[in-house]
Design a binder for these strands. Structure first.
Lengths: 349, 349
DNA sequence: ATCGGACACCAAAGCGCTTTGGGCTGCGCC
DNA sequence: GGCGCAGCCCAAAGCGCTTTGGTGTCCGAT
């Protein structure tokens, strides 16, 4: 069963391909009566224009590319990617675009962008997990491939389109909140700090401490890939410290799961013996919700960021010459059960 | 900067498009010397054949489609999808295929398959989260679109290609294990039971109980979408029961996170007061690993299933006439800290 | 010397669409 | 009556590739 095509449809209708094409694409040169007749026939015969042929003829592919690098780092990204992709992908589908995902070893990522360009398979791409210095942006600039970045790449010279959470402010606020509760020894369990967001989070944390004259202690800072196991291990190390922290700031709710486990295994109570504040991406399967959520958190929906970036990317594609837009989202601080006043008698010290 | 194309490349080389095309595609009608010269030039000029043009000419699109339905159910699927997609997508990329993902409201899923077919945008599709009776398979059969199913659709009449974990056996084994430990009141916190895998899991659980003469108690069975919050709520209900369970079987590690939280909030100890056994999909960000993993689990890697299904789908595309293959994977039972002997004095009862 | 057949290459058609550059009516107007 | 002008519609070119059906050359065999 071959799919219906333009030629066949126009033959059935007794019209030229030109007219049928124009009728379906809303050109004014065709009478309303004919247009209706054509539309109806297209529907009846289940006709949709062949994507490839249309792309060839128009030069537009109506697809957006994204590459998910396979690497140790993918572990942290997967669940976050997934929710981001839902926000992004839904908005994209609504506009009639398709989303192609390349899952390749990290070192092949540049190659994929090159091939996207050379084979003309996408109209634009979305860049995930930007690093502080990220060569991908320069490459995309060079290739002339429209792109938007989820996050920022601090050291990239040229302007580019991005949407980011104000990580610095968020972590400074969370740190302030903990200090307001009387905590002075606050640990940080961060994501990998070559990633821009983690870099900024540490910065916000460090600045807030410095502003109150508290020295940052390298022993209180961990930077690990954001898995439950890593959160657990990092927290165990922190608890074994002679000067163990009374509060912990964690870069993700997934880390926090492991952190909580370590706290409980040590016979301590989260929110009483050790306070925990996290950044919450509002993952669909791990909601930190309710009147009094489990975790005190700086919250910003990654799904919303996805939808926002989608709109931005399509704009860039339509008007590549305009200066690239950007958007800094503020995270809200929500108070949960995982934080409380600093213990008055710090144990062991 | 326009991308290099065949015409231009052949002009540069002083050869016909035919010869260049044949040289690159490995046809024998071209001398080795010429082939080398062409290959080298293609590399040097960053030439890759335009995907759409190639697709138009060959009728093969070299892309696989998947649709991720946006619905309440997506919440449970996201993180699992993500890891599956890594396994599938990596294998796919290795074969030179692309993966397009449509993220649409559930009720549009059929429409997407129709449009995949009508617009000729994919060579095949992968079907996620099959239901006990799943109309999608009949639709795909009718459309003549090659597909493979991750899981099974019990009531689908015709043969189809699938890879599934032996859910029934896995849950029967886990139930047996709990009974061997002396548990008699074993609850089930399952996924939504219109989904085939959840249906089979309940069946395995029920059969194992029945085999030892234990009646299944509807009050001890929950079927919810697999989020942390739902696991927590279901466990709270179970703990409030006059006859509360001494052990719980959970369909996912994500549910188990909420289950553990409810147990601890009730002042109980998991593995001592309440045993928990789960099914573990080996999610990258939530590993249940180590000598003595946190959770006793039936384990089967969803990533591996993805890679397996990829190979299967490509085979179906190449040889649509062969009888559809299938593969039933056995989950291994691993013992963790979350299970222990049934308390000798059951509290409250 | 002629022929058959590898061997190496090529021109042109065709994949299914959009779009350019018309053509043909029928109308109102001078 | 002729002209201009909408209003509708069409034939054909072109997007970048593969593939069919060749052509021309060179060589060994007859």
């Amino acid at each position: 069963m071959k799919a219906m095509n333009l030629k066949e449809l126009s033959r059935v209708l007794g019209l030229s391909q030109t007219t049928v094409s124009r009728a379906l694409n809303g050109y004014p040169e065709v009478s309303e009566a004919t247009r209706r007749r054509v539309r109806e026939a297209a529907l009846r015969h289940d006709y949709s224009p062949n994507t490839r042929a249309k792309g060839l003829a128009t030069g537009r592919t109506m697809t957006i590319g994204q590459v998910v690098p396979l690497s140790t780092a993918h572990q942290m990204m997967n669940p976050i990617f997934a929710d981001f992709a839902v926000g992004f992908g839904e908005a994209l589908a609504r506009k009639g675009y398709e989303l192609v995902t390349a899952i390749v070893p990290e070192e092949q990522e540049a190659q994929v962008y090159r091939s996207f360009r050379a084979r003309g398979s996408v109209d634009g791409v979305i860049v995930h997990g930007p690093r502080v210095h990220d060569p991908r942006l320069a490459l995309l600039d060079e290739l002339g491939l429209p792109y938007v970045v989820h996050g920022r790449a601090t050291e990239h010279g040229a302007p580019y389109a991005w949407v980011d959470v104000d990580n610095r402010t968020a972590f400074a606020r969370a740190t302030d909140h903990l200090m307001d509760l009387g905590h002075a020894r606050i640990a940080l369990i961060n994501g990998p700090e070559h990633l821009d967001f983690a870099h900024r989070r540490r910065d916000g944390y460090a600045r807030a401490l410095a502003a109150r004259g508290i020295a940052v202690d390298p022993a209180q800072m961990h930077a690990v890939e954001m898995t439950e196991l890593n959160g657990h291990a990092a927290m165990q190390e922190l608890l074994a410290l002679p000067q163990r922290p009374t509060a912990v700031l964690a870069a993700s709710i997934i880390l926090a799961l492991g952190i909580r486990r370590a706290i409980e295994e040590a016979g301590l109570v989260m929110g009483r013996d050790v306070s925990v504040a996290i950044h919450d991406d509002v993952l669909s399967f791990l909601q930190n919700a309710g009147d009094r959520p489990v975790f005190t958190a700086t919250r910003s929906s990654i799904r919303d960021a996805g939808a926002l970036l989608c709109g931005m990317l399509l704009e860039r594609i339509d008007a590549p010459a305009t200066p690239p837009p950007s958007r800094l989202l503020q995270a809200e601080l929500i108070l949960g059960q995982s934080t409380g006043p600093a213990p008055t008698l710090t144990p062991q010290g």
